[in-house]
Write a protein that binds this DNA or RNA. Structure first.
Lengths: 193, 193, 193, 193
DNA sequence: CGCTAATCGAGACGGTACGTCCAGTCTTACG
DNA sequence: CGTAAGACTGGACGTACCGTCTCGATTAGCG
């Protein structure tokens, strides 16, 4: 039975993060200000600064507090099908409203602020990547992939094109594009197989 | 015969961009301010706002004014060798100091500011991608690649992992990693070749 | 012919001082804030900080911008009558609303802030005292006072009890009290006249 | 026999006041904060607020806790000598470090805060004035002063110039100046006795 | 002597204002 | 006319204290 103090503080923390997401959706991350979050949440600015060192850190935590569900990787025995399934879900969540624009802004902030980059990696990118790697490793262990299969490289070839298309080219991701990437990853693209 | 006025204006424009890069290297893009650039360049703020609508736009132009050299794609007849050559040069330029951190910040800004994103795409990303696509197309036309070779997909699989590693994972790129990506692109990664 | 820039700036300066006095009368000096003055005057905070280093300095200037009138000393030939006349006017102005409470607060601020104290002395207290001393000196030169009459001491004995009563004892000043002080100054209070 | 509770509480009260004076001397009254006093004294803020309603009240009490000694008026039979003696002592205490600056600040606070003004009057100014008045009254009763001698007026003429010089003009007080005021009080300053 | 109540240190909290920085606009004076 | 200089409004920054409010953890006399 946790103490009442924690209960109250946790409630406030949660309220701040909820308000951050709300405001973030309304006006966008770039125009978001700690001042406005504090005002909307009915909270003193210090209460926010006590918990997070910067707007980016607050925003990161707020986003991470959402996407706990659905991270788990299926393992049906068919590694290709599992990858498709999981990546389809991931892009449906991260590349579409309401989360898509916020996640894009979060990565933008990470590129400007090393602290945020480090936290983002530790709390989201790396765990996510490790799940993919783990699933691939299981497949390799089961003999579905060659013994010298390069797990990290495969992970990069799976994720990279999607991030590139979503963030750099700024075109929406489709399940079809994911499938083509997966296909290419395993089959290669010639010349002359 | 261009008038002297233009000459003077162009000189000023160049001076502003040079100062922007200087300051950007000293204090980082995030802490850069138009105020500071104007002061350092000995220029009125208005003179900057007359030329660029935002810090991001100024920064983009400043960076683009640098890397004109070396964009050209070689065509030795060996598409794999040419890709390696060109991509090695590209990452040497864009993923290492002094340009690396600035380019990273520029992409961060683009993710927060759609105008900058559009301009960055128009003036750098797309032209660069098109050169890769053009080189691949030439190879396809010469029969080195299968007729249904998906040019855009290949370009995404070449660039994506590099951007992913550099920007998201934030690990430095190596020639060896580039080579492994190229290898995988054409050969595929199993299962069972 | 003064330039237009000064005209505009001067107008703003005056508006700020007027607002300061308004707010000062409404909520009192202690609760006055630069923030509130700026908001009410429709002016950026920086515009105030550019002109005055502190709330006290702003308040001092604002008050001094008012009481230019009526400082002049009469000289009817009768030094006692002239002192009465002038001092009555002074206390009517400085010890009664609307100025009284503000002047009291100004002196309070001066006691807490040496910069304000110095400015107050230079711009009000000393000039005022010098006028009294000058009137006394004229009287001495005309033989109405003894040649070794101590001008500064007399000025202190005239002003001191009034300030003491107004500020320390905090009882209102009356013309009658002024008259008794003047009477005592010249006649002495015994023992044995 | 007072209870032990009081003993401990009194110790804490005393510690707070001691800390207040310490900090007041180090950084000045203006920069003093209840927060800082509490931290330095190792005491919760509440413990201070439970005892004093404001910074000014705390400071007043802290100062008053010091100058218990030396308030007593001598009565040697010679009223002039006694006044000199007592006033010399008073200015030596109140117009010189370490107490001088603090006393000055206290009066400044009183001018900004009516509650402090009232408390200062009740606990220091009035008792002190009454002692002077009492000593003068004794002299009058003994026939050393004329029967219609105005006691309050005399007190004002004694104290006023000293406060005026110390607080308004901000020049240090000297025994010699005190003597000249006393001399003028009794003898008057002309014109033509 | 043990128990209820007060007091305490610590410090979180909502709030106000601070003094600074910069954005983006506007004005003036120079060349 | 374009410019350097810089004043201007406005908004947010991150900090400092205010005075209030829990928290447990000591004490306190009272039963």
């Amino acid at each position: 039975m946790t103490d009442k103090r924690s209960a109250k503080a946790a409630g406030r923390t949660e309220a701040i993060m909820r308000t951050t997401l709300e405001l973030g959706q309304e006006i966008g991350y770039a125009k978001l200000s700690i001042e406005a979050v504090a005002a909307r949440a009915g909270v003193g600015k210090h209460t926010i600064y006590r918990r997070w060192p910067s707007k980016g850190a607050l925003f990161l935590d707020s986003l991470l507090s959402l996407n706990r569900p659905g991270l788990d990787y299926p393992d049906t025995g068919d590694v290709v099908a599992d990858l498709r399934e999981q990546i389809h879900m991931a892009i449906d969540l991260l590349d579409r409203p309401p989360l898509g624009p916020l996640y894009r802004a979060l990565i933008g902030e990470a590129l400007l602020n090393p602290q945020v980059a480090a936290a983002l990696n530790d709390h989201f990118i790396t765990p996510q990547a490790e799940m993919t790697v783990a699933r691939l490793k299981a497949a390799r262990d089961q003999g579905q992939l060659s013994p010298d299969f390069d797990l990290d490289l495969a992970m990069g070839i799976l994720s990279g094109p999607l991030y590139f298309r979503a963030l750099i080219i700024q075109e929406p991701l489709t399940h079809e594009y994911v499938d083509r990437v997966i296909e290419a990853l395993f089959a290669g693209m010639g010349p002359r197989r």
